[in-house]
Design a protein around this nucleic acid. Structure first.
Lengths: 107, 107
DNA sequence: TATTAATATCGTAATATTGCAATATTACGA
DNA sequence: TCGTAATATTGCAATATTACGATATTAATA
């Protein structure tokens, strides 16, 4: 065993979990924080900023991208990565909805 | 390789990542959702509610507990699990702070 | 003090994630 | 079109996570 039993949960539950998974690795958090700090789009300069290899950064970018959180435009030879703000706000809303609904009725 | 390079990130970055990790598994999300729905504390009844074995549930509870998100009181033979609301709100605040600071400055 | 029910821990197998070197692809400019 | 810089993909090794059976622990009760 070892695989998650994904079929026993509601869609909402798995949604929240896979959403949180994007943010569950410090490299991905750092990438998003770096994107936020920049005045313009980011390219391969993240590789030097964060201390990971280019393939590893690329993999993490893909995870973030697969969640729909990035917009990529080609700028010369490099790809410009921006945040998909709309999608990001959707994420925040869904997550806060979960957090707000999680309460305690005793103790 | 395979281990996360935790030493290259800022404390804030790793904090957010480990916070998100708690919610990154559907079983843990489901457990928290179940706690919220109950009128009183929960005991071993979650085992039947979620389709996982007792040891597995116990492990997930420990992960949530290690994050400081639970309060456990003994009630007879069983342990009563409640949400540590204060800690939970701290989590929400930290996470929202990150989400709110994550913006796009181009495109 | 046994018995019993509830929960935790241990050991282990299966799978997932992380990370990088090597290589491929892509798109611009000479 | 050929070279070059930027990014993506592949393949693989190391580690982490998930899950459960077996067993230990804990605390109430007979």
């Amino acid at each position: 065993m070892g695989a998650s039993k994904t079929d026993i949960y509601s869609p909402e539950t798995t949604d929240i979990a896979s959403l949180a998974k994007v943010f569950s690795h410090p490299a991905r958090v750092a990438i998003l924080q770096y994107i936020s700090k920049q005045e313009s789009c980011i390219c391969n300069d993240i590789v030097e900023e964060i201390g990971l290899s280019q393939p590893t950064i690329s993999q993490h970018l893909q995870v973030i991208n697969n969640a729909g959180l990035l917009k990529g435009n080609f700028k010369g030879k490099s790809i410009c990565y921006c945040l998909n703000v709309k999608r990001f706000q959707e994420f925040q809303q869904l997550f806060n909805q979960f957090l707000n609904n999680t309460t305690s009725n005793c103790c």
